[in-house]
Design a protein around this nucleic acid. Structure first.
Lengths: 205, 205
DNA sequence: TAGATTGTTAATCGATTAACAATC
DNA sequence: TAGATTGTTAATCGATTAACAATC
């Protein structure tokens, strides 16, 4: 029996739902309708209900959605109900800022190591971490069953690093290098490129 | 006569085209076909040609696109052919990393100031900047005709900061706070939220 | 019960792709 | 010239929305 395929665009919206629900929960609100939640997220009520309906029936007619239940369900769906080991590759300004960023562990993304190739940087400490030699990446990945890597190396290195890590078993990349990464179909890449986002906006200015 | 409206999803792809073309140019290649460029970007040749055709006829049958010409055209379209003044609000780890990031000015985004409210931080220097008192934001925005702000303040402050800056004349926000910002229709917001991107990927793991 | 709101269907809207005449 | 590749049209595919019976 084939598993019903859920559009990736729907999956991409779920984290926003989860995030917003968690913020609403802080205000001691227990229940919310699709139209109120939609407004908070900037999405139509119909789309919200449709998106959620791919995964089950989480609401109640007349009252809406129980916030705690929906939060828990979304966490399960997104596999955000567990801890993932993550590495950072590249200990420049950005990699260092990421290593110090507290929210990753708060949301279950446990940073195990930060790597660099520079002799000058290896051994130095950043926050709670000591910069490790990039030569040990593959070992560490296998040892800690790391499936997720954040890439903050220069464009010229990015594809090589990614190829190496895929071989070692990594299958999800948060990519900060402004380059399109070529990866096998089963590997996921999400890119962060502020320059592109700025250019997207300046078009309209 | 009404201006033909170009889908926002098309605008969002143009920066990637520009970026990739600039990287190809470095290899001293002068001409590229839509299928070769498409492959490099991870997009179909048809879509690439369709996207570009919204703005003009930039290619030549038989040979493809002249890379220099296309780069220049894309820069004009995206208004990336000029210098924009930008401010950073929030001088935490992330704001500081952004202030040190060299590529913004390289691509025409001139950071004029970084602001914070913390007495401890005001007056301290980060890279080439001295952290300024957030109370002076509106003045600075007007003085330097700032249209773009990068927001790295806590979630609890983000909406207030944005409201204040919109009043001062800012109309484009690169938002690093994990919250949906409510803004008037003419204001653009692009958000960067690594946690959401990680959750998007862990769904598939 | 009456009002509110869900989950879902069908209609609409929009984006992507295949195909090809035009032409470099 | 012959081969390659564009720009564009029409067909297809997919996503969003409107509407409403079901029901809390």
């Amino acid at each position: 029996m084939q598993k019903k395929i859920i559009p990736d665009i729907v999956i991409g919206r779920l984290p926003k739902y989860l995030q917003t629900l968690q913020q609403i929960k802080e205000k001691n609100i227990y229940t919310i309708s699709s139209s109120d939640l939609g407004e908070e997220i900037g999405i139509s009520a119909a789309q919200l209900r449709k998106d959620l309906s791919y995964f089950g029936e989480f609401g109640k007619q007349g009252t809406g959605y129980n916030i705690n239940i929906l939060i828990n369900q979304l966490k399960i769906i997104l596999k955000a109900d567990r801890v993932w080991n993550v590495i950072i590759v590249g200990a420049g300004d950005l990699g260092s800022a990421l290593a110090r960023y507290q929210d990753f562990s708060k949301y279950g993304y446990n940073i195990v190591s930060i790597f660099d190739t520079s002799e000058e940087k290896i051994g130095k400490s950043i926050g709670n971490y000591t910069i490790e030699n990039a030569k040990n990446m593959a070992n560490k990945v296998k040892l800690f069953d790391v499936k997720i890597a954040m890439i903050t190396v220069p464009v010229s290195e990015a594809q090589n690093v990614v190829d190496l890590l895929i071989n070692a078993g990594v299958s999800a990349f948060l990519n900060y290098a402004p380059i399109f990464l070529h990866v096998p179909e089963y590997v996921k890449v999400e890119s962060i490129d502020p320059i592109s986002q700025l250019q997207h906006m300046t078009y309209y200015l």
